[in-house]
Design a protein around this nucleic acid. Structure first.
Lengths: 166, 166
DNA sequence: CGATGGTCGTTCCAAGTGAAACGGTTGTCA
DNA sequence: TGACAACCGTTTCACTTGGAACGACCATCG
């Protein structure tokens, strides 16, 4: 405890952070990771209770609802999910009768996905719940803060799309 | 494509989002999730190349460096990592000769963790690299934006610490 | 004391993950 | 055309994960 506090104070005074213990409470990747894992955990419970879906299935359904019609591979691009994970989630959703899959006539490597009527209803319930949860989650943010957050997330996302640079 | 664009425009006009497809490009949990998984992936590659560590081990090392001395369970609290995952990461780090573990004299349920000299050096290299990467990652943000991001992350994290509420 | 309920960390086991290999398809270029 | 590289989606396989059970330990209360 003295170690930590001392280092923290010192760094707060100098404003530098070039050596000494990494200030986790200021390290953005760490904070993003912890926050996101908690957010995802909450949403996963919602998805489970609303529709009995696990996270990969729910994510595929959500992305599909927005981008449909779309191929599995495009879902991978959008979400950074693993190729195999998406493939299995799609298989389960088909087995559950929630989505359809048919070959693209112009490129038979692609299998384009869509909703069944039941899938559409499940999607509606799911997104309604997701929106409600998000509203609760963000309720303490002022509109300007929310806008700021959105802008920053967009900027950071773009940063990672660019050069690999190490 | 027309579906999506139409809905998007309509929602942009009304400012509402109470029904219709969920606007993924505005859904914060989704954006957090995608961004974080990409950030984590990059950092994981850093950790691997610098010290041959996989993500859970690197995270334990990082948290340990900041909070040391600390028990496994406290690491779980801080990171939201799984208990078993931390247990195994600790075991590997010990096997690698990077950290030490001894029972707390006042409560022998607790095993307090610390660095070996080699672990300290590994930690230094690791955090130095992590800091450099973060600096690159955040370079496009103005200081005010970075401060705003930190404040918002703190506020959102606190929101999840409170009541379970669903 | 002794019993009971709670916490810490490990281990077991079923389930999920990701790297790699695969079959199938497309586009290119000679 | 035929050879070849690139790409899509699936499957396989080794590994990791997380829920549950477990042993060890502590605190409380009768």
């Amino acid at each position: 405890m003295p170690d930590k506090q001392e280092a923290a104070n010192k760094q707060r005074q100098t404003g530098k952070q070039d050596n000494g213990p990494l200030r986790l409470d200021r390290f953005i990747p760490y904070r993003l990771s912890v926050l996101t894992s908690r957010v995802t955990g909450r949403l996963a419970r919602e998805y489970e209770s609303v529709a009995g879906l696990q996270l990969p299935e729910a994510r595929v359904l959500t992305v599909l609802g927005f981008f449909k019609p779309i191929s599995s591979n495009a879902i991978v691009q959008h979400t950074s999910m693993d190729k195999a994970t998406v493939s299995r989630a799609v298989a389960r959703l088909i087995r559950l009768g929630l989505i359809t899959r048919k070959p693209d006539p112009t490129d038979r490597r692609l299998l384009v996905l869509g909703f069944t009527p039941r899938g559409q209803r499940t999607y509606d319930r799911l997104t309604s719940r997701a929106r409600a949860w998000e509203a609760w989650f963000l309720a303490e943010l002022k509109p300007s803060e929310r806008a700021g957050l959105e802008r920053i997330l967009a900027r950071l996302a773009r940063r990672l799309d660019g050069a690999t640079l190490g």
